[in-house]
Simulated assay, not measured.
Amino acid sequence: MGIFKKVGETLVDLSVIAWDNGIALANLFAPKLKEGEVVPAGAPGHQRKWPEYVPPGPGDSRSACPMLNAMANHGILPHDGKNISFPEMNHKIRATFNFGASFCYFVPNFSARFLNRSYSKDKFDLEDLSLHAENAIEHDASLTRHDAAICPDQSKPDLELVHDLLATATGKMPDGTAQLTKSDLSKALSKRRADARKTNPKYSESFFHNMFGSANSSTMLTIFGGRVEDLRPMLEEERFSEDWEPRVLDRYGLTMAKFNGTVLPVERGVDVKKYQ
């Protein structure tokens, strides 16, 4: 990578972090969104009314990310999962899940980088995001997929892994239904990393991928509030449950700054040695 390009990317990242901190500060003073109105008017899912769910068919493109796949299955992203622009992914993720604007720019922009494409000009298919590489976001020891070296098709969840994950829930919602907690996720990640090390001869692990794995998992606690009843259809069928909406009520969306308050404890709680 040319030094000027690297410096330019670093400046962009620093700007996004500053932007994100500003949004986090604004959220402290802004009134919360009303339940039932989290998804903005005019967007699919407003007032908890989601477009029809249609499973992927032959030739449709899907990724290793259940949330992106669900957006395609409900027609929020193109149902075939192809020819998506990075700004389109940015704007639709923000409206669908109430992530902050800074968050929604950072991830697609990072995706464009590891795919060596232009954020503003190029397009991608969902399966492109499953690139298994050191600088990409797909990683070993996922909680919903077996490793790419064992299962090259990352487009579908492994139901045994999903069931094992949801069965670890020790929390309870006020109505008595099951809820995943931070410690549950730490335990699940510990077991998956230990198992992946044993079963995948090509297993790779880095601080970046571990943090990204904990971040992926932490969306279950933030966007879904850890509610197993909502997570089951998302993880098993990659669809939104009826009458669902994002559980983050911050007016300007979930920021990276606030999200780290969940991600870091989850990752700190991982202890692979207990399961080796």
Rank of each mutant, 00 (worst) to 15 (best):
F4M: 14
L25C: 14
L235V: 11
F97C: 12
S204G: 12
S241Y: 04
S120T: 09
F114P: 02
S155N: 11
F114K: 07
W50P: 04
L14C: 12
I93C: 09
Y119M: 06
H163D: 15
E37W: 10
C65D: 14
S118E: 06
P246Y: 09
G2D: 13
S217G: 13
F114D: 06
M234Q: 02
A196N: 15
M211S: 04
Q47D: 06
A24V: 00
N73V: 08
N216K: 09
S155W: 10
V54G: 03
T199Q: 14
E52R: 09
E237P: 13
D250R: 09
M71G: 06
P233S: 00
E267H: 08
M256N: 15
G45V: 00
V266S: 01
P246T: 06
N200Y: 11
L14E: 08
P66Y: 00
G176A: 01
K123A: 09
S111C: 10
A167H: 14
K6H: 08
E52C: 03
Q47C: 15
H209A: 06
A149I: 05
D158T: 04
G45C: 01
V38Q: 01
V38P: 05
V248P: 00
F259Q: 10
V16T: 08
P78R: 01
S183I: 03
A257L: 12
N260W: 07
K274P: 01
K82A: 01
N98P: 01
G81D: 05
R94M: 11
L126S: 05
R62Q: 09
P246I: 05
G261N: 05
G171K: 09
H132D: 06
K191A: 07
P44L: 01
K191F: 05
A70F: 03
E52Q: 05
E236K: 03
G269P: 05
H46I: 07
T96C: 03
S204H: 12
S190A: 11
E205R: 14
L185F: 04
A133L: 03
S218P: 06
E237H: 08
K274A: 05
D271P: 03
L161A: 03
H91C: 10
G176V: 01
P152Q: 08
S155P: 04
G81V: 01
R232L: 11
R193V: 09
L249K: 14
N210T: 11
K273V: 07
A215M: 15
H74I: 03
A194E: 08
F4V: 12
A43S: 12
E88Q: 12
K123S: 14
D80Q: 05
R251H: 14
G8I: 03
N69Q: 13
Y275T: 02
E88D: 07
K258Q: 15
D175Q: 13
L189C: 02
T96W: 00
V270P: 04
D13L: 04
N260Y: 12
S183Q: 11
D60P: 01
R192L: 05
P246M: 10
M71N: 07
L264H: 10
